[in-house]
């Protein structure tokens, strides 16, 4: 009985790891509010290195509020049009999925 339980647990672990590593979310409409999954084996914690908090502005000038530049393309009603391309939760996918 105990041996049988161990086998079942092992099968479940293999399934979860396979799903994480190879699995692909169901095709079609995206899931709404699907929870995140972690199934990787634990690892020994190592001492944490820290980001240096003294953060100088990278490219920004230190000036206060500046007028919005008109050099770039303006929309018909004035102002600057901006384009933001964005991704999230791509989970290491390099190939087509679905």
């Amino acid at each position: 009985m105990r041996h049988r339980s161990s086998i079942i647990i092992m099968v479940l672990q293999v399934f979860l790891l396979s799903w994480l590593a190879l699995g692909c979310s169901p095709a079609g409409t995206p899931a709404a509010a699907v929870g995140q999954t972690e199934g990787l084996p634990g690892r020994t914690p190592s001492p944490t290195r820290y980001y240096d908090v003294a953060l100088p502005p990278k490219t920004a000038t230190a000036k206060a509020q500046s007028p919005i530049p008109a050099a770039t393309t303006s929309s018909s009603s004035g102002g600057v049009r901006l384009t933001v391309l964005h991704t999230n939760d791509s989970r290491g996918y390099v190939d087509p999925c679905g």
């Binding site: 979310s25 995206p30 699907v34 391309l85 964005h86 991704t87 999230n88 939760d89 996918y93 999925c97």
Partner: peptide, 9 residues
């Protein structure tokens, strides 16, 4: 979305 199936603009 998810899994890199789309690019948002």
């Amino acid at each position: 979305g998810y899994d890199g199936e789309w690019l948002g603009r």
